[in-house]
Amino acid sequence: MARAIVLMSILTVLVILPMIHLVFAEPAEAGQYINRKAEIWNLFFKMMTIAFTVGAVVSGTLIWVVWRFRESHPKAKPTKYEEKGEW
């Protein structure tokens, strides 16, 4: 447990600190106006990258599980709960 806490705090420091740095060290805008459209759509595409990656992992896992553990799969074997018929 203690090790986990240490590990987590190190990770936090490694991830969060650079991010804070990045946010606050931004130079003042030099005359040019920010492009609202580009900023927001960029955020959207970043989020969609995450969403579709996670989505691929989760749906991929779900589809694999459904395919592998269906009862008609050649390697399907009774679960250990089936002996007693209780689960």
Binding site: V58, S59, V66, R70
Partner: peptide, 24 residues
């Protein structure tokens, strides 16, 4: 479902489909 022996009767199909869409 991991390590199960699933029977895809109608109720099960609806539930698994529901989980997939729940994630989306």
């Amino acid at each position: 479902m991991w390590g199960a022996r699933m029977r895809f009767a109608t109720p099960m199909m609806w539930s698994v489909g529901g989980i997939a869409l729940f994630f989306s």
